[in-house]
């Protein structure tokens, strides 16, 4: 699109809607951003189930079936990817010094990954414990 800028006529290219297909990096960025969506939908479904459970066993019809299992696996994959990318980026964000030296980012990333694994293991154990 040509337009005037001061005394000069310039041409301004607009970003095409397909900009995210230009580079693999852009593509994975969009996947990262959208990976929160299946997780959000899954959590909304879970909230719906918890609400219906409040009405007692009679009104409680947990979601099941092949479709829901497939969707849950997809949501799990995306939420793992989202968490992994988020925690990896934390190495670039968190910064502090120890005795005048910048603390390296890899222990920060690993510490978070380990904490993530411990918390996940605890939740799995707690769910199993309640179910038995």
């Amino acid at each position: 699109m040509a337009e005037e800028s001061g005394n000069t006529r310039v041409y301004r290219k607009t970003m095409p809607p397909s900009w995210w297909t230009r580079k693999a990096h852009y593509f994975w960025y969009v996947v990262r951003e959208f990976s929160a969506l299946p997780l959000a939908i899954w959590l909304l479904l879970l909230l719906g189930e918890i609400r219906s459970a409040a009405n007692g066993p009679a009104g409680y019809h947990p979601l099941g079936g092949t479709g829901f299992v497939i969707f849950s696996v997809i949501a799990l994959f995306f939420s793992l990817y989202h968490s992994y990318t988020f925690l990896s980026l934390s190495g670039a964000i968190i910064h502090f010094k120890v005795i005048d030296r910048q603390f390296p980012s890899w222990p920060i990333v690993w510490a978070q990954m380990i904490m993530w694994a411990i918390v996940s293991a605890f939740i799995i154990w707690a769910l199993w414990w309640f179910s038995t």
Binding site: V10, R12, K13
Partner: peptide, 15 residues
């Protein structure tokens, strides 16, 4: 360069 208005050929407006 992408994302900048083009003044002429390969020259962009860096204002």
């Amino acid at each position: 360069l992408n994302n900048f208005p083009i003044i002429r050929d390969l020259v962009i407006d860096m204002e």
